[in-house]
Simulated assay, not measured.
Amino acid sequence: MSSAAAVTPTTGSSAPATPGLHVRGLVVRRGDRTVLDGLDATFPAGAVTALTGANGSGKSTLLDALAGVVVVVGGQVTGLPSEGVAYVTQAVPPTALPLTVRSTVTMGRWRDRAWWRPLGRADRGIVDVQLDRMGITDLADRPLDELSGGQRQRTLVALGLAQRAPVLLVDEPTAGVDEASAALVTAALADEAAAGVVVVHAAHDPAVIAAADRVVALD
């Protein structure tokens, strides 16, 4: 069973207390196991919050709860925006579709368009910007299933960024990437927070954790 053991602002943090997401008394079960039990935490806008803790402590489950993709048994999550959240998971389901890097990132723009409406110039521009931010413009026409783990991770982060949601959730954003790629991802998350976005990510990498504005440790 897990709860928020500590919330620690890192050096230089100036994140506001509100607005943001607020978790009170959260209880989440996976099968017959209680993963989160009575968790209280706040995730302010304008700050990057890192979730830390051992494997099995509930980091991914908490992200699932914030994204609304897991049933909450008790407690509540408040502050969720009507526009929804952008959620970048580690798992990429297998697909028979010939998805390229560009088409994958472009999916981030579908939420703002009815299915029958083509993407406009502004949407294509947003996609181009995110490809450049993640250093994958040269991979734009490559099939997703031909990428390395690090390249795929950067593509998924670009997909989340392209949604331009007020809440960005990322599970292990630098998993499988090299140092240069990790720097790109970390800088992008910081830029999103600076623009007023609620940014929450699970992390094991000490450098990525140190770069966050706040740390929520799950025990």
Rank of each mutant, 00 (worst) to 15 (best):
M1E: 10
M1A: 09
S2F: 11
A5W: 15
A5H: 12
V7A: 03
T8M: 12
T8P: 02
T8E: 14
P9V: 14
P9T: 12
T10Q: 15
T10A: 14
T11A: 15
T11R: 13
T11V: 10
T11N: 04
P16E: 04
P19N: 00
G20S: 01
H22I: 12
H22P: 01
V23L: 02
L26M: 01
L26W: 04
V28A: 13
V28L: 14
G31V: 05
D32I: 00
T34R: 12
T34A: 08
T34S: 03
G38L: 10
F43N: 02
P44S: 11
G46P: 00
V48I: 03
T49M: 04
G53F: 14
G56K: 06
L62K: 07
L62Y: 14
L66H: 04
A67N: 07
A67T: 12
G68F: 07
V70I: 14
V73C: 02
V73H: 09
V73L: 04
V73P: 00
G74M: 05
Q76T: 10
Q76S: 13
T78G: 00
G79E: 00
L80A: 14
P81M: 13
S82W: 09
E83W: 04
G84I: 15
V88E: 00
V88W: 01
T89M: 12
T95S: 15
A96F: 10
A96S: 13
A96K: 11
P98E: 04
L99D: 11
V105W: 03
G108K: 10
W110T: 05
R113K: 02
R113H: 03
W115M: 02
W115N: 00
R117E: 08
L119W: 02
L119P: 00
R121T: 10
R124S: 07
G125Y: 07
V127Q: 01
V127N: 00
D128Q: 13
D128G: 15
L131S: 06
L131H: 06
M134L: 09
G135D: 03
T137E: 09
T137N: 05
A140W: 14
D141N: 03
D141A: 09
D141K: 01
D141E: 13
L144N: 01
D145K: 08
E146Q: 14
G149K: 01
R152I: 14
R154H: 06
L156F: 08
L156H: 03
V157K: 06
A158F: 07
G160D: 05
G160L: 10
A162F: 09
Q163Y: 12
R164M: 03
A165K: 14
A165C: 08
L169C: 08
D171F: 08
D171R: 13
D171E: 09
T174E: 00
G176T: 12
G176D: 04
D178Y: 11
A180Y: 11
S181W: 06
S181N: 11
S181K: 00
A182M: 05
T186E: 07
A187I: 09
A188Y: 01
A188F: 03
A190M: 06
A193W: 10
G196M: 05
V199T: 03
H201C: 14
A203N: 08
H204Q: 15
D205I: 11
A207N: 06
D213Q: 11
R214Y: 05
V215S: 08
A217K: 11
L218P: 01
D219R: 15
D219P: 13
